[in-house]
Amino acid sequence: MLAFVIRRVLQALGVLLVVGFISFCMFQFMGDPVEGLLGQEATEEQRRELIERLGLEDPIPVQFVRFVGNAVQGDFGLSYRLARPVSELILERLPATLELAFVSAIIAMALGIVLGVFTAINRSGFAANFIMTASLIGVSLPTFLIGILLIYVFSVQLGWLPSFGRGETVEFFGWRSNLGSWDGLRSILLPAITLGLYQMTLIMRLVRAEMLEVLRQDYIRFARARGLSERAVNFGHALKNTLVPVVTVTGLQLGSIIAFAIVTESVFQWPGVGFLFIRSVEFVDVPVMAAYLLLIGALFVVINLIVDLLYFVIDPRLRSDRAGSH
């Protein structure tokens, strides 16, 4: 057990170090940091002084160690485009992205499970077939087109919901939240649906497949034989046993949700980290790109690590396998 955990943690650290090295290389080879910070008008003396202060003439390994040290403390230097500390920019926008991801994960899970159960129980019904076909088309639609379609229907034509921005936010302990006001809730609805739609179809298909599998099992037949109501069988016995894979898949999808938030945030001009990142790619703002890369890298590595360890806890077979081979 301990050996497995230690090995997984070491692997995760290795991946992080590689990601860190890539973002370090971005700093090294893209653009001239001295020019980025001082502009072209700087005197030779100012340049010398800055090169000295940033330690740009130290050996590469020394610079890399310093880069990692700074990154661990959250110091990524100044944004070339906005001339503000990158950590400040990211911290300012992180709550917006996390909240969007959270709400869309909730929507995806709730709708996905309900529709999955529905399509599994009424397998050959017209409504179930319609939902399955619609989900297939939905998967082929690019995210940004779904967002535009929703804006067109609900903002332009019907005028029910705002088409961009966060709307009114309420501050809880320094966290600016959309969930505290009616206007904020209205603003988050469309982006959250856009972002969650893909995951919703994924969860729906998974729940449906798992339910069909479980409904064939003997204990379901036995529950029916005991005279339990259809409702108790479907939800109390069948659904409960499908939830473990659903939770793991949703967990693994959390990273993708945050990555795809880049697209959704751009469509709805949502002031989150994804929007910040795409602007930084457009303007080749290296410090922001590097910091975002590290942030997302860390997030993915941590999520994968947690899911792996959870599997280990949930599934005893994995444990004996490992014990047998080592």
Partner: peptide, 17 residues
């Protein structure tokens, strides 16, 4: 481990730089 669209964006940004 990373979604490919994210990787494409990063490579695009680096190559652009």
């Amino acid at each position: 481990t990373f979604p490919s669209i994210l990787i494409a964006m990063l490579i695009f940004g680096v190559a652009k730089g």
